[in-house]
C-alpha cells in the first residue's frame, strides 16, 4: 500500500465564495454594443468564456461576460468582473498579471484573506484545474488588447 497523501481539503477548493459566485455569477450578461470583446475556450474540458467591455475613455466602465464552465471557471469570471470594473486598461492588465502569477509553479503569492480572489488560491494545488481559473482572465486580456479573436488556454 502506498501512503495516502495529505492533500488540500475539498472545502478549501470549493470555498463558500467560490460556490456562491458560481451559483449566482455577477455581471453575467452580454453587452449588445461592446467596445471590446473576446472569446476563450478551454479545449480540454469545453469551458467557454466571452468577455464584453464597455469603455469610458481608458476605463473599463462595464465588464460583463457569458460563460459556460465548471464552478472554478464561473466563480473566477464573476470575481474578475467585480475586480476590474472601473480600472484603467493598464491597471486591469496588472490585475490580470498578478492573478495569473498566483498559479505559477512555486508562486510565493501570499493570499490576503481580505482579498476575495484569494478564494481561488487552492486551485494552485490542482494543476489540471488552473486553466479553469485563468481562462476568464486570459480572455479579458485579449479583449483589452482589442484583439477580436479567440484565445485558448491550451
Amino acid at each position: 500500500m502506498t501512503m495516502p497523501m495529505a492533500g488540500p481539503s475539498l472545502r478549501d477548493l470549493y470555498r463558500q465564495t467560490v460556490l456562491d459566485h458560481s451559483r449566482s455569477p455577477r455581471n453575467f450578461r452580454r453587452l449588445e454594443h461592446p467596445d471590446c470583446l473576446a472569446t476563450g475556450h478551454n479545449a480540454l474540458c469545453g469551458d467557454k468564456v466571452s468577455v464584453y467591455l464597455g469603455l469610458a475613455g481608458d476605463r473599463l466602465e462595464d465588464v460583463s461576460y457569458e460563460a459556460s464552465g465548471c464552478a472554478i471557471c464561473m466563480a473566477s469570471a464573476s470575481l474578475m468582473s467585480e475586480r476590474v470594473t472601473g480600472l484603467s486598461r493598464p491597471e486591469a492588465s496588472r490585475a490580470i498579471d498578478s492573478f495569473v502569477a498566483r498559479f505559477d509553479p512555486g508562486s510565493m503569492h501570499d493570499d490576503d484573506p481580505a482579498d476575495p480572489l484569494s478564494a481561488l488560491a487552492t486551485v494552485r494545488e490542482y494543476p489540471s484545474r488552473i486553466r479553469c481559473a485563468t481562462l476568464p482572465w486570459e480572455t479579458l486580456r485579449a479583449a483589452i488588447s482589442g484583439e477580436h479573436g479567440t484565445v485558448s488556454t491550451e
Binding site: 475539498l10 477548493l13 464552478a71 484545474r129
Partner: peptide
C-alpha cells in the same frame, strides 16, 4: 454540477 467539478470531488 459541472462534470469537471464532479471529477475533482470524486477523486477526493
Amino acid at each position: 454540477i459541472h462534470p469537471h467539478d464532479l471529477g475533482t470531488v470524486l477523486d477526493h
